[in-house]
């Protein structure tokens, strides 16, 4: 890159802005009494990056995700998010109003069970439109058009915009949940086992869809799963957790093809081959 002719400050400023992680996690710890939920977790998530977190049940994956997304309060540590307006801020020091605002604009949370993330008594259009309305949209026609557009993007027939999620199949519910979360154009998504409980062909379609969306809108994702195939497909980097500790981290292919830690080796070799 030729820097010679440029007026130094501006260029450097921009570069610094680009070279800043979207989410910096430092020493996050959460305990349940004397038991460890997760401890000593630190990592950086860069814009457009997908970070997979794998581990067995009870390894602290979901606790960690809860701490990062503001649903649980960690006992110590920092979760620094690069906000649009004010730059990097520790989300744990934010007021609840600010955190909720973040939660409906720049953040998304996809639950394993779509019933946890959807309003089952409200139509598909209403589900997708809720974030828009929460962010101040007050034009019915525009809200509906955006909702229909997003249904199409997640491969749901837009003529079903007035149907309740209850009438949808499991895979459709999950895709609806994704549309409902991404409609506000978030920069960071937390996903807790987004493909759990779906059959394999539906899983494959969902993964395909997710991969496309992540690439299209440059979304950063923290993805918790126990399914190594899912992280192989979606994740750029991987963290392996056991007993609340991060025991191995690195590029996904690196970790999966050349696992160093004994537990990771066990995990990788436990996958059933067809």
């Amino acid at each position: 890159m030729d820097m010679a002719g440029a007026s130094g400050g501006g260029i450097w400023g921009n570069q610094e802005a680009e070279a800043r992680p979207l989410l910096s996690v430092r020493g996050v710890e959460k305990r349940y009494g004397t038991r460890i939920g997760c401890t000593g977790v630190s990592f950086d998530l860069w814009p457009g990056e997908v970070l997979g977190i794998v581990g067995e049940s009870g390894s602290g994956k979901s606790t960690l995700l809860g701490c990062l997304s503001g649903q649980l309060r960690p006992d110590s540590g920092q979760v620094i998010f690069d906000t649009r307006d004010h730059g990097p801020i520790d989300t744990l020091s934010m007021s609840e109003a600010e955190r909720r605002h973040l939660g409906r604009t720049d953040w998304a949370f996809v639950h394993q069970n779509p019933r946890d993330g959807l309003r089952l008594g409200v139509s598909a259009g209403g589900n997708v439109g809720e974030r828009l309305m929460a962010n101040g949209a007050r034009h019915y026609g525009n809200i509906r058009a955006t909702a229909a557009d997003w249904l199409e993007r997640v491969e749901i027939d837009p003529t079903r915009i007035d149907d309740r999620p209850r009438q949808f199949s499991g895979g459709m519910q999950q895709r609806l949940q994704i549309a409902r979360n991404l409609v506000s154009g978030p920069r960071l998504a937390f996903m807790d086992e987004p493909t759990g409980g779906l059959d394999v062909s539906v899983q494959a379609r969902l993964l395909d869809l997710l991969r496309g969306l992540v690439r299209d809108i440059g979304l950063s994702v923290v993805l918790v799963t126990h399914d190594l195939a899912v992280v192989r497909l979606l994740a750029d980097r991987l963290m392996v957790m056991k007993g609340g500790h991060v025991i191995e981290a690195g590029l996904t292919d690196q970790v999966l093809d050349d696992p160093q830690h004994a537990y990771t080796q066990l995990l990788v070799s436990s996958v059933l081959q067809v």
């Binding site: 909720r100 409906r104 139509s123 259009g125 809720e130 974030r131 309305m133 007035d162």
Partner: peptide, 22 residues
């Protein structure tokens, strides 16, 4: 109560949206 405290009233608008949709 939390919604009132934070004036986070998107949900109220959803109710009206549902009315028009139906």
């Amino acid at each position: 109560r939390r919604i009132h405290a934070l004036a986070d009233y998107g949900l109220m608008q959803v109710r009206l949206y549902e009315d028009i949709a139906r």
